[in-house]
């Protein structure tokens, strides 16, 4: 089951409070401004800075 679209609308980057977008493979939420990816585990968005990975780490 993919992550709920309504939930995506209300999420923001915990660091800059800016918009985030779903990664193509739906494995995380991307903040382009902060260059961070917040993981999605078992369809749960983990919106914690300490859990976020920079773009480099996720490649």
């Amino acid at each position: 089951m993919p992550i709920d679209e309504k939930l995506l609308e209300i999420l923001a980057c915990p660091k800059c409070k800016g918009d985030i977008k779903l990664k193509e493979d739906e494995s995380g939420l991307v903040c382009e401004t902060c260059k961070l990816v917040y993981p999605i585990k078992d369809e749960i968005p983990i919106m914690l800075l300490e859990e976020a990975k920079s773009f480099g780490e996720t490649k």
Binding site: D4, K6, L7, E9, I10, L11, A12, C13, P14, K15, K17, D42, E43, I44, P45, I46, M47, L48, L49, E51
Partner: peptide, 25 residues
Amino acid sequence: LLKNKRFNFIEGNILSLNIGKILDQ
């Protein structure tokens, strides 16, 4: 609860989430 479609869960801290956006809804 996670099995229910009417339950949406966010792992996050209210001190850092953009809570206003959530409260709008």
